[in-house]
Amino acid sequence: MAIVMNGKKITAAFAWVESPTAVHMAIKILAGLCALLFLLDIIIHRHTYVPGEGMWGFYTFTGFFAFTLIVLGAKQLRSWILRDENYYGEQSVDSEEYPTSQLDIQNEPAVDRENDQ
């Protein structure tokens, strides 16, 4: 994939990130790594301080379920506390754009993008 910027055609580094094969591959690698880490728990004896920490797969379960519960909890929280950006009106920066005079915005529109065939 290439991107046209300021009239110049540049090839995006890391463009492979977007290809579906790469994404599938990354997921497979992660799943493989997780399986390996899970199995290593049998072979390697972890030194522990806390009761229950030495349980098989303690960190794997904690990691997975803590993350899931946090996301689900946050989702529930959002349903209670989400408000419009103008909720606090002019008293809050959420209602305004960052003053562009202090920035150096260089933002080419996406229509310039084209695919290498």
Binding site: C34, I44, R46, T48, G57, F61, G63, A66
Partner: peptide
């Protein structure tokens, strides 16, 4: 043990992210 524990925690959390 320490590296293993931390990698297990983080990789399975990542896995949860992919799953979600």
């Amino acid at each position: 043990s320490h590296v293993l524990a931390q990698m297990q925690l983080l990789c399975f959390a990542l896995l949860a992210f992919v799953f979600l």
